[in-house]
Amino acid sequence: MLEPWGADSSTSYEPVADDSARVLILARDALSQGRIGDASAAVDSVGRDDVPAEVRAGLALIGLVARLARGDVRGAAPYSRELTGLTRERGRVAALAWYGLAELAAARAQTDLAITAFEHVDEEQSTGRDHPWLPWRSGVARLIAGRGEIATANALVEKELAEARSSDSPYAVAYALRTLAAVAPTSDRIGLLEDALDTLAGVGAARLEAQIRTDLAGWLMLLQPAEKARSVELLRSAEAYSRREDLGPLLSRVRWLLERLGEHADGELPGRLAELSAAERRVAQRVVTGKRNREIAEELGVSVKSVEWHVSHILRKLSITSRGELADALAQPRQQR
């Protein structure tokens, strides 16, 4: 997911007397700085029934992106309904709306729908010169690269990177470099991600930085295994941030990489968690937070039956009979026989 403006964006809304416009500024800044919880809380603190369409679109988009950052696809749905109605507007408002709908479609793996929505962003932005930074090209590039259209994806990101450099926005440049690393030849990826991190130095964009650190650690693990210590350091930083902001998708990816490096995830549930397999641990960690099987399945990208199977095995392995006992069981050390 993306932050739609960037920590240092020159595009902003003028402070006005209207409370919703002030909240938009606060929410936008929180999102771009990686304070996802604060951004979500700000959006939900103000009503949006009688506010200007552009402010309403901005708030709904931020709310949607914040929910998706936490893996809460269901929670993003109300914002998507708001944005759907705003696609009837033109220019900036419609661009914001289509961008949000594209991100939600991508999160749901609805590739064709996401690409179409991203292209609508381009159409709406072409109607005027004054528009917020919405990196729709990165969105399309990642989707079509997955289909093997590497040359087209690369061309899209190169254009986005050129525009970002001309706007003198380190955030936008770092974002484009991260996307370029995802579609560039393998030999170029580490260098591009290192450039992205250098570009972000001092910007204060915690989420984007954590995402880049995670990407870089993954490629170091594959291409430069002797750099294990650096990979772990990068992942520990990303892990601490994503755990603090409760960013389930990013945290799951960080911990998956740590497991591949033979490292235990910092801050995991103590005690008998080590008795579970990696898949069982991922399910158990979500069960103890109160998530239902369907929510866990959506977050992990597996079937509900698969989650049910894991829960059954977890309970049997730990010799307990209910989900409610799970947190206490995991906190206890293994009993020596």
Rank of each mutant, 00 (worst) to 15 (best):
A69G: 11
G58A: 09
G47L: 12
E89R: 09
A57T: 03
S80Q: 12
E82H: 08
G63M: 04
R70M: 13
P78M: 09
R74G: 09
E89Y: 10
T84N: 12
L64S: 03
R90Y: 12
V73H: 11
R74M: 11
V51E: 07
T84I: 12
G75N: 02
L59I: 02
P52V: 08
E54V: 14
G47D: 15
V51R: 00
D49N: 12
A77M: 15
G91Y: 01
V55H: 00
A53R: 11
R88H: 12
L68D: 03
E82P: 07
D72W: 13
V73C: 04
R74Q: 14
V51Y: 06
L68M: 08
A53F: 07
R88F: 12
R48L: 12
T84Y: 10
V65N: 11
L83P: 06
A76M: 04
R90D: 11
R70E: 15
R92K: 12
D49A: 13
G63I: 03
V55L: 02
V73P: 00
A53N: 06
V51K: 00
L64P: 01
E82C: 05
R81A: 14
R92T: 07
A76F: 03
R48K: 07
G85K: 11
A60E: 01
L83K: 06
R56L: 05
L68K: 01
R81G: 08
D49M: 10
G85N: 13
A53K: 10
R88Q: 14
A57G: 08
A57I: 02
G58C: 06
A60V: 05
A69D: 15
G75S: 02
A57L: 02
R90I: 08
R56I: 09
G71F: 07
R48C: 00
R67G: 04
